[in-house]
């Protein structure tokens, strides 16, 4: 009897799927200015193609706040256009800052995933606690971006900067 080796499921990028689920929750928990409640819901992604693909998969079936979701990817901060969410993949402030600064000109939720970013560059920063993906948040940046967030988000955050 020749035993079959089980086939590993490599079709799903688990981290990308988890992060895209969180990003949808962040977006659903955010109250945008009136001008942002019309037209497409734009999620901009920098430096993370797997996440962009996962978000695109979700966008095929799921809207956010009744708006059609459109996922855009960028490699240059100068190219960033008006968006609702900007995810910036990058490990250093030098990588993240140009994109974060550009996004400050829009009412966008700025999301990062690197230590120290929550203090001045991101409204939300993904962290790994134990083995779990969690997040910290910066209320000051949310306010500066003209965004109102639900209390639930704050309760779930591992750290809140005010």
């Amino acid at each position: 009897m020749a035993t079959n080796a089980q086939t590993m499921n490599t079709a799903v990028n688990t981290r990308a799927k988890m992060k895209s689920l969180f990003i949808y929750k962040f977006a659903q928990s955010t109250e945008y200015p009136e001008a942002y409640k019309k037209g497409d819901f734009i999620i901009a992604v920098v430096n993370d193609d797997d996440l962009a693909n996962s978000l695109r998969d979700a966008a095929k079936a799921k809207s956010i706040n009744s708006q059609k979701v459109v996922v855009k990817t960028y490699t240059s901060a100068a190219d960033i256009e008006r968006c609702h969410v900007l995810y910036i993949g990058g490990k250093t402030a030098g990588e993240v800052e140009p994109f974060s600064k550009k996004a400050r000109s829009y009412n966008a939720v700025i999301i990062t995933e690197a230590p120290g970013m929550i203090d001045r560059l991101a409204a939300i920063n993904f962290v790994v606690a134990g083995s779990l993906i969690k997040f910290e948040m910066n209320n000051k940046i949310f306010k500066e971006q003209g965004l109102v967030i639900s209390n639930t988000l704050e309760k779930m955050a591992t750290k809140v900067v005010n």
């Binding site: 089980q6 499921n9 799903v12 688990t14």
Partner: peptide, 12 residues
Amino acid sequence: IHYYNQGVNMID
């Protein structure tokens, strides 16, 4: 792999 795939399927 059985445990791993179960986890992946759950996320998926």
